[in-house]
């Protein structure tokens, strides 16, 4: 949920974000992938039917930053700033089982991963590290692709606290 970066900040950073990502993908990321420098764990892939283990995914970036690659469509407070992490809820909250699921491109290996944006629920809003990115987000009449919805559904309480971004698979191109 949410939209409220400082807007001037958002507009300049948004531009910077887009241009830097483009150049990064076109440059270093592509070079690495193209050059085959990063081995993508054939063992893990074999043992899970083509899906790599999440722990073996090459990573880069700051998980407490909106610009972190797996936050490409996150909307809300980053749980890592609320006592949790990008994959776990803060103490005393409950992770929503119901959510929406999208994909984000990992700049290190150039692959798209499936991301589950489960909200953490049952306490008042965290209020820290507000992020709003919308790659692949679609309007609310496509709820399976929408981040404006309070996804604290199927939980004891619908109070929204913060959002996680959990890698649940490798996208099939």
């Amino acid at each position: 949920m949410g939209w409220l970066d400082k807007v001037s900040e958002r507009s300049t950073r948004g531009l910077a974000r887009r241009s830097s990502r483009r150049s990064w993908l076109a440059g270093m990321g592509a070079a690495l992938v193209g050059g085959g420098v990063i081995p993508v764990l054939p063992v893990a892939r074999a043992s899970s039917g083509g899906q790599p283990q999440a722990s073996d995914i090459p990573d880069s970036g700051d998980p407490l930053s909106c610009d972190y690659w797996r936050h490409c469509a996150i909307d809300g407070f980053l749980c890592g700033c609320c006592g949790g992490t990008e994959t776990s809820c803060p103490p005393g909250t409950e992770m929503s089982p119901i959510t929406w699921i999208g994909t984000c491109r990992n700049p290190v290996d150039g692959k798209s991963y499936v991301i589950s944006y489960n909200d953490c629920c049952g306490k008042t809003a965290c209020g820290h590290c507000m992020c709003n990115r919308n790659e692949g987000d679609r309007p609310m009449y496509r709820p399976d692709k929408n981040n404006d919805i309070n996804w604290c559904l199927g939980t004891k309480s619908t109070l929204y606290h913060c959002s996680t971004a959990i890698i649940i698979g490798l996208a099939v191109e």
């Binding site: 039917g49 119901i98 999208g102 399976d144």
Partner: peptide
């Protein structure tokens, strides 16, 4: 295509 079906399930159904 088992891999694709599984990922399609994640992206289209699993959320709910």
């Amino acid at each position: 295509n088992v891999d694709k079906a599984r990922v399609d399930y994640m992206l289209n159904c699993q959320g709910c």
